[in-house]
Amino acid sequence: MSDFTTVEIAKMAKNQGHISQRRYVPVHIILILGGLGMVFPFVYQILMSLSTNLQIQAVPPQFIPKTWHWSNYSDVFAKLPFLHQFWVSIEITVLRTVIQLILCSMAGYAFARMKFKGRGILFGVLLAILMVPGQSYLIGQYQVIQSLGLLETPWGIVLPGFFSAFGVFLMRQGFMSLPVELEEAARLDGCNPWQTFWRVMLPLVTPSLFAVGITTVLWSWNDLLWPLVVTTREESMPLSVGIATLAGQHSQDYALMMAASTMAMAPIFILFFSMQRRVIEGLATSGLKG
């Protein structure tokens, strides 16, 4: 990077633009057509959520509602336990993300920078759980949560998710890339290992924290099978399970379902748009290192 001056970089960019922009027209056409396929379901969903069941079932299709039926959205709150489930989703996502970040960064730091007996073996024991598909734990986890009396509770939904081998792995990678001199300086200043970790090292691995945090938010908001198993009462379900139940009960009420599912997806989309670059970088690292 430092080898080029900004002027040179600008010049290079200009040259490329000059050479290739016209040649890229077919590329743009293909990417735009494909992109429409990616976006269309969401646009259609929002249009239907403002429409009526009659219009949704119209042949030939009517994409643009004649009048905008915002009442579908208020119906969601009136007819369905939506707010309750929305709150459960927020609760489990925040709980799981915060606690997982704390546990994983501490463990990641220890595995990266502390020397203790059995470190390699313990790390192997931890990573081994990633090799096993989730279903193979599920019945056992259910039995454990049941015996703890936590079925139908947010804690029952989040507890197994606190302990993430994947998160520890990513955090360890983050800590390993920091220079050791920092810790030595901290130690000379009289920090104990906790203070070194908390005040000096942790602030330096924010990209890793983001990577772990973003994947956890996404997984816990969208997760279906585990919460489906742990909750059976409508008021203790998160949205993913709630939508499934609704889809059964209101299978013909398309507009209502569209409004509910739009609102169920909205928080993740808002989060994504507000910190787009971080999300993409975070997910890219989470994948490459996996």
Binding site: V39, F42, Q45, S240, S261
Partner: peptide, 28 residues
């Protein structure tokens, strides 16, 4: 592709379905 305009918009667009709750978008 080097120099292609609108990279970040394309990346974002193709990425959207991954964010969507499968349960919700499957209804569409």
């Amino acid at each position: 592709l080097p120099g292609l305009r609108g990279k970040s918009i394309y990346r974002m667009i193709y990425f959207l379905p991954y964010l969507a709750m499968p349960m919700a978008v499957a209804q569409v």
